[in-house]
Design a protein around this nucleic acid. Structure first.
Lengths: 213, 213
DNA sequence: GTCTATATTGTGATAGAC
DNA sequence: GTCTATCACAATATAGAC
């Protein structure tokens, strides 16, 4: 039984959930506090009680969405596994997660574009003691692995920045341009799901094949 | 010397240019008619004189931005050139164009996500007599080419939808996640330009290599 | 902690003079 | 065709009762 004047975590979570839905649909600028309040089943004043302003609420939502996969991705790419395993784990993790929340990638890309200034603050909040270029340690480990494989002739030389960009690009693209797939390529929902199945199965081989000498 | 009461195409163009800049920065929802008017050097009422409403102005801007590369891409992919040449032309066209307007890809992705309902209307306006799945003809030609190459053992089998998605993904990613490159990978402006140079040179080989049997 | 009511400012759009 | 002035309403945020 919670005390009467302590913050109600359950209400806070309901607001956050509703805010996530609304911000994902309309973006920070297009979202309306009224709509969030309705979807959370509370009134508008309560949003300000918990989060002070629309801007802070938007920041909380974005931080959660953008940082969701970061730890898992860092763990995969920075591990001691073989490259083949890393690529497969990355592809499966990304596509399986995005499939459950198919509008998050589009939302994150949109916010990244319109509010890039938010990124440093959020990164500092999620990983307080991290080094200046946030991904430096993982990038260094990954780079060393790629370099070793290239030296022994197993793969072509590739900078870890490009490797990472390629990985992310090939996984995120179906979610980022989904309306175009629907319109230009005539994909309905089942076809889109099949498209994801195919990519999940084929991308690891495609990527590793591209690195062959 | 224009007649006094004929639409001034020059003014209309100035408004459109200003609108493009503002919409690209802030998106449809975040853009302010006042800001567009200032940037165009006219007053707010004139925007409505030329474009009736914010929504129509936004649609005009998005149609131009989203459709800009469509004809050239269709020409490249639907041509009779060899696959190697198509890939190289696509990569060079996309990166060279996006480099001159580096915020357009992010803007298009954002609008695609928040206003997918606009796409059909715009597609119909840009290509009035086109078939239902807009890219059907090009996709069929490209698919036949890929199938023929696969049959003779030159490449692995790949559906044209995946081929196209991979091509676009690998080209657009630096522009789509640029703030992340800056923050997480520590890329400043010159480093970003070098990154683009490297991708422009390496992507064709990377993509074709990935298709080897 | 949650509500109703309201202050205050922002914003798209129009009327009408020139 | 372009301007100034203004309307009408939307939207964030706060005050204060319960």
């Amino acid at each position: 039984m919670p005390r009467r004047s302590a913050p109600d975590r359950q209400t806070e979570q309901r607001i956050l959930d509703a805010a996530r839905n609304v911000f994902i649909r309309h973006g920070t600028a297009g979202a309306r506090m009224q709509e969030i309040a309705e979807e959370a089943g509370v009134n508008q004043a309560l949003l300000h009680y918990y989060f002070r302003s629309k801007d802070r609420l938007a920041e909380a939502v974005f931080a959660e969405a953008a940082g969701r996969l970061a730890p898992a991705i860092a763990a995969i790419l920075g591990s001691d596994e073989r490259l083949e395993r890393k690529v497969e784990q990355f592809v499966h993790l990304y596509i399986d997660t995005a499939r459950r929340h198919p509008y998050i990638p589009g939302y994150v890309l949109a916010e990244l574009h319109h509010h890039p200034e938010r990124l440093p603050a959020i990164a500092a909040r999620l990983a307080p003691g991290a080094p200046k270029p946030l991904a430096q340690p993982i990038l260094a480990r990954l780079g060393a692995q790629l370099e070793a494989l290239a030296a022994e002739g197993t793969i072509r030389p590739i900078a870890p920045e490009h490797f990472l960009a390629n990985l992310l690009a090939l996984c995120v693209i179906p979610f980022a341009v989904r309306p175009m797939l629907t319109l230009a390529l005539g994909m309905d929902e089942p076809a889109f799901q099949r498209f994801l199945d195919e990519r999940r199965a084929d991308l690891p081989g495609f990527i590793l094949n591209a690195l062959r000498p």
